[in-house]
């Protein structure tokens, strides 16, 4: 059992403990730009009574929800094609290519999109050749979404692909055999069979989008700021770490609720009448 110890110790010391400390920190006070240990609810009250906090909260929630829906929908035909139409060789290569972005700098990719999306960027340059535009894409919600897609799409396609590839082909053929058309089979049979994987993919997409600060900041222009940006601003420009901790805990709790509901939904047996 000594093999269990290294992981246990490291994660307790440097993962669980810091998270616990974050909770404690949210009750501390800041006096003369110094943090003082204590047990005061002032940070919670201050943050929760500010309009801008709730604006940021619901805006972040909305962005992450839109990102989840958009990414899942855009990823599905791709994952479906790779799972059901592609040869095993093509599928393996696709998988390999989809893992690559995971290890390339997300920052550099976001910067690249700035070059594409800017008012004088490549897309608007192309549009102007045909007499359109310029369209404002950078520093809009569209820009944020492009960033979220960059972050989430490869992962969501991979996760959807894995669960679709596990779908029993017999059941698909059984549906055709019973008179179910191709498109209808996707919704009546394939999606229910792959439900757990699809929900897990969507959940990861939500978690990534909800916590990301690069896209809403560099591509979305931080107008209005999201919760992550709020944490950075609060931490970096001053000593209001306890308030940042309040935001962080709120985010974690939200994510836990979302993840828990998603898992419950994914594994729920349909109730029978």
């Amino acid at each position: 059992m000594s093999f269990a110890l290294p992981g246990l110790l490291w994660q307790l010391l440097f993962f669980v403990f810091p998270m616990m400390f974050l909770i404690a920190l949210s009750f501390w006070l800041v006096k003369n730009y110094r943090m003082v240990p204590g047990f005061e609810s002032v940070n919670w009250v201050k943050m929760y009574t500010r309009g801008y906090f709730w604006d940021a909260y619901f805006y972040t929630l909305m962005l992450a929800a839109i990102s989840t829906v958009v990414t899942s929908i855009l990823a599905f035909p791709c994952a479906y094609a790779l799972a059901f139409k592609a040869s095993p060789t093509v599928r393996r290569w696709a998988m390999f290519l989809l893992i690559i972005p995971f290890f390339t700098s997300y920052l550099v990719r976001a910067y690249s999109w700035q070059i594409f999306l800017g008012n004088e960027g490549i897309f608007n340059g192309l549009f102007s050749v045909f007499g359109f535009g310029p369209y404002k894409m950078l520093h809009t919600m569209f820009g944020t979404m492009v960033g979220y897609l960059t972050l989430c799409l490869p992962l969501v396609v991979v996760l959807q692909l894995l669960s679709l590839a596990n779908v029993d082909k017999n059941l698909v053929e059984a549906a055709w055999n019973l008179g179910c058309g191709r498109v209808r089979t996707i919704f009546q049979v394939i999606v229910p069979l792959a439900k757990v994987g699809l929900v897990v993919a969507a959940t990861f997409c939500f978690i990534l989008s909800f916590g990301d600060f690069v896209s809403p900041y560099y591509l979305g222009g931080s107008k209005p700021p999201t919760l992550s940006i709020l944490i950075i601003d609060t931490t970096k420009s001053g000593q209001q770490w306890p308030r940042a901790a309040v935001v962080a805990i709120t985010m974690i709790v939200t994510l836990m609720i979302v993840a828990f509901s998603a898992v419950t939904y994914a594994y729920a047996r349909r109730t029978r009448q």
Binding site: D168, N170, L171, E173, A174, A175, W176, N177, L178, G179, C180, G181, R182, V189, P192, L193, K195, R270, R272
Partner: peptide, 29 residues
Amino acid sequence: RPEERDTPLVWQSLALFPFLSVVENVEFG
């Protein structure tokens, strides 16, 4: 296409839909 024929098949694996109840499976066709 298979869905355009009326040639129902009983599969070796049975291929019952696990996300549907017994009666919903039977109703499918």
